[in-house]
Design a protein around this nucleic acid. Structure first.
Lengths: 219, 219
DNA sequence: CGGCGGGTCAATCAAAAGGTTGACCCCGGG
DNA sequence: CCCGGGGTCAACCTTTTGATTGACCCGCCG
């Protein structure tokens, strides 16, 4: 049985070094390569493919300052011929992040502050084709299928995120290429589901329930 | 010349491992210990002091989920008898983070996405008693001393906090026993100082600059 | 003492946001 | 095949917010 070959994708050299050090200490895991952003990850994948060296798991951060971000990179990887499973390893456990990652085709969602042993298990599980979710991610998805009426749709979450950045209805409309009327419609739905009646209260509620990340907590 | 002895403080095992791996590769640096939060850092410092093993530089993250955060830890360390220099190594370069760190007595402010070589130089500089700032940190402090007139008054901060909870102008007025007109006046001033033109953008800006805590985050 | 900054309030107008109703399209499942 | 949910848009009206102007009080400081 050969090692599980991992591709690390994270924009922080420190984190890459940390994962490399941590994972190589485990039996049965080796680091195939690392990349600082999504584009570099795709390059590494094709480079390794040419060499005949497969990658068994991609370990991907979601927040990446420059270049292609984690969601886009995950989606791109899943479109390859024989895509390796993508395990998201990130800092935040907000609904928005989790949903985006799952929709993009991630096969797992773990948090960076997880103990090393959990990360090790997650890597093996992902390599075996299993889905592995952090507790909060699992709970969110369960809740989503049991009572879909009260939870926000992906579109609504998207607008909520833009809302939280301080954009006006008109600005949001332009951003997502819909009319201002539609933005209002969505917002009314959002207010109803969150039990509020204005945008600032919606931001507060959504932040509190960890539907969105606090404003301005980017990379 | 003995090695520069470093104490790592970061709540993520991955990051601690990364810094450890990265720094130990450099000549002249060794890791004295690491800690997951502020309290543990102080414990480590006193433990090492008892052993007669000094610490030359504390490498500190600002954001730490549980326990004492980076700012408080920095302040506490600076109150020790022979405090080692504290070099902040964090993810965000927001105004309030930088200001809080400098006010707490940090002798440097670096970003985690800095290349390893820069981090190495910063550690040596800090150990030598020098001050080392990331470009944005330096720029902010320069700007702050040249035009100090742009900061919010305590009253304005108070209204901003209420604003962030989702209250309407009228509700804010009742809360602090002033008229709605006065609330509007304050908001106009706040918008001017923050460079925004509506309440949601004010919340985003204030959160980003850590003037207020993200909505629904316990203090 | 005289000003100045912070806090208070009012009136007014313009702009944005909120609420309602109704409509159309598309897709997936009973 | 029809229904329902999600997404889109429009028209309309009410309420809230934002912007401007001007005013008063108070405490501090030169």
């Amino acid at each position: 049985m050969t090692d599980v070959r991992v591709l690390l994708v994270d924009d922080h050299p420190v984190v890459r070094a940390g994962l490399r050090a941590m994972l190589t200490e485990f039996e049965g895991i080796s680091i195939a390569a690392d990349a600082a952003d999504g584009k570099a990850a795709l390059r590494e994948l094709s480079r390794l493919a040419v060499l005949g060296e497969g990658v068994d798991v991609v370990l991907m951060d979601l927040q990446m300052g420059a270049g292609m971000d984690g969601v886009a990179a995950t989606a791109a990887i899943r479109k390859l011929a024989a895509p390796p499973p993508v395990l998201i390893l990130t800092t935040y456990d907000t609904d928005a992040d989790i949903l985006a990652a799952v929709e993009a085709g991630a096969s797992g969602y773990m948090l960076k502050d997880a103990p090393p042993e959990q990360i090790r298990q997650a890597v093996f599980a992902a390599a075996a084709g299993e889905t592995v979710l952090a507790p909060k991610a699992a709970a969110l998805l369960m809740n989503r299928i049991t009572n879909p009426g009260t939870s926000l749709t992906p579109r609504e979450v998207q607008l909520l995120e833009l809302l939280a950045t301080g954009l006006s209805n008109r600005a949001i409309a332009k951003q997502v290429f819909i009319s201002e009327a539609t933005v209002k419609t969505h917002l009314v739905h959002i207010y109803g589901k969150l039990g509020v009646d204005n945008r600032t209260a919606a931001i507060a509620a959504a932040t509190q329930r960890r539907i969105i990340r606090p404003p301005g907590q980017a990379s």
